[in-house]
Design a protein around this nucleic acid. Structure first.
Lengths: 355, 355
DNA sequence: CTGTTAGCGCCTTCAA
DNA sequence: TTGAAGGCGCTAACAG
């Protein structure tokens, strides 16, 4: 962070004093009236509101924060704002916050595949937000600890440990749904593209989906080859590369379950590049319900990230409301909210070709 | 409360007073040292920084804002955070701001096609941000006026009137590039899908691209039928519907230039639905360089919204730095920055079929 | 180069 | 139900 020039700025906006003077009351009463506290008579409240409107009065958030200790804003922590799930979750969260007059502060952190991401240093959030919403960011244990050290309400969307408030889809159900769709079509040799290698937390979406795939196969009495599951980066190119690897080493595969739609799209590109017909020779299914899945006729297990983001924001807000109320700190302590998914069948899946 | 082995948590809210006391100086000196003002000896500065670090001191943004009148944050105004251009522009802007320690406040506004969008009411921004960055949002004249009434530095990305600081691609050049690519392949009957009906501002991207299409055709001595240009919503379905209308009424078209990649993708879907081969019977080109254009082999004129967002943020920051400095208010007054584009040829365009 | 002194604009006890 | 007064934590003159 480099230093930034500072200069004085003229302020010409109406202050609470102006309103108080014009309404013939004290600033304390103005403050109470404008915040809707009950201890103000309806008559004076209305008068004050009228005066405030006429004067175009807008409270200074800085002054209010300084005096009250609450900022009415929350920090949105995310590695990307320009990916499908993240963008939609952020959108949902922002709308829910705006609804109740909370600001959304965007904090993106580099999360490159080369692990060189700067550690999330949440100290900048101190005194700046009333709570933190982590959007789909896989955090290390140390990062989570430093977030918790802020002693602020915390919520997670899309991924998160069980000891936190977390809103996500049911990864197990989604993974089974996808796999069972393929099994139901008659496939037996079903490959899987999971997330990046090295992630083994059970609360990580790709890990849970991977496990669901394995269980679904077992339940169908299909003995999965070890090589049928390959890892890849969680985007189109990651899916493409992974699919190439898989199809190279295991051409017997007739169907493929990718842990995300973007990876599934990558897999479809890879199949095309190898001259493999989808769904004639290879069925492909993903998870997400990506808007552009239709471009390649992608069958998928759809979710609604915006709703998840909105609900997580609301949970966070209620935690914030309870914050500092004695004896009620851990109300929603470790709440896990699982959002529903639904199968969207398009043209990337079909029964296996009879050979 | 019983004693319990707790993680050594950073001291609960060390204030500037604590740092001053521990360093044996006044708070004024701490303030100066920590902000990197030159009027502090290197020795005391280092000492103060050390003490601050040891104490885990983090300045209160509210107090700093209240005292200085500057918030070190900017408002990001946008209709959507979950569309390709917007998400990437926001990402670029956020990173540029974070770089210099500025916060990005996200403000989304509904911009539904039914015109029922709530007017942008910028009064909430008063005293809350040092500047406003409008991302690709077509604002009415009244909305712009109310923004200007804030008397804050203002910048636009992707769209904006000439009297403002605006960063965008060269719509004219991009539109010509796309059209001339089709002309160069030998097409003469070239349709165009522009933006929503009713928008006629020359500073609007779809309008400028439409004009470029018309001029390019004229220069090639092609007399465009009036019906060759159709309007549509700026997304996949808008493009799809528009393409259906166009192909229904003007089947003689052999190529199609859509004002955005998402509309172009929609057009490709429409062609598929009508059994029209792309590029065999119909070439399609868009503008954007959307990540997923590759899924349908979309030829496009690519831009980099993240860079545009970043540059707009920097221009805004320099305007903020100059704010209230006598005689320098309008330095970048009406700066128009045009970013380059480049043609990406894939498989959705080809010479017209010989008939 | 450093300290002193006032606020910035609001919230929040405490009294009335 | 209202008012008076004291901060919240920091910055910005002005001295020295």
């Amino acid at each position: 962070m480099t230093s930034f020039p500072t200069v004085p700025r003229p302020s010409a906006a109406a202050s609470m004093d102006d309103v108080a003077r014009a309404a013939g009351v004290s600033t304390a009463t103005v403050s109470r009236a404008l915040r809707g506290l009950s201890s103000v008579s309806a008559a004076t409240r209305d008068r004050i509101q009228g005066v405030a409107r006429d004067l175009g009065y807008v409270a200074s958030p800085s002054a209010a924060s300084l005096a009250s200790g609450r900022t009415r804003s929350i920090g949105l922590l995310t590695p990307w704002v320009d990916r499908w799930f993240y963008a939609r979750a952020i959108d949902g969260a922002e709308r829910a916050l705006r609804e109740v007059g909370f600001d959304a502060l965007l904090y993106t952190f580099d999360l490159s595949s080369d692990q060189s991401r700067p550690r999330v240093d949440p100290s900048v959030l101190r005194r700046r937000v009333d709570g933190v919403l982590v959007v789909g960011m896989p955090l290390s244990r140390e990062e989570v600890a430093s977030l918790e050290a802020l002693d602020l309400p915390l919520a997670f969307v899309g991924t998160g440990r069980h000891e936190h408030v977390t809103v996500r889809l049911d990864d197990d159900a989604a993974g089974r749904c996808a796999t069972e769709h393929l099994l139901g079509l008659g496939h037996r040799r079903i490959g899987h593209i999971t997330g990046p290698a090295g992630v083994e937390h059970s609360w990580s979406p790709p890990v849970a989906r991977h496990a669901a795939w394995r269980v679904a196969l077992e339940e169908a009495s299909v003995a999965a080859e070890p090589g049928w599951a390959v890892d890849g980066a969680f985007d189109v190119n990651g899916g493409r590369e992974a699919a190439h690897r898989l199809l190279e080493t295991h051409p017997e595969i007739t169907a493929l379950f990718a842990a995300s739609d973007e990876m599934a799209m990558g897999a479809i590109l890879a199949a095309r590049e190898r001259g493999i017909d989808v769904p004639g020779e290879l069925s492909v299914i993903g998870i997400d319900g990506h808007d552009l899945g239709e471009l390649v006729g992608l069958t998928t297990v759809a979710q609604d990230p915006a709703r998840q983001g909105g609900e997580a924001a609301q949970l966070l807000l209620s935690d914030i409301a309870l914050w500092a109320v004695p004896g009620s700190e851990k109300v929603s302590g470790a709440l896990q909210v699982l959002h529903p998914t639904h199968l969207v069948v398009r043209s990337s899946t079909a029964p296996p070709r009879q050979t």
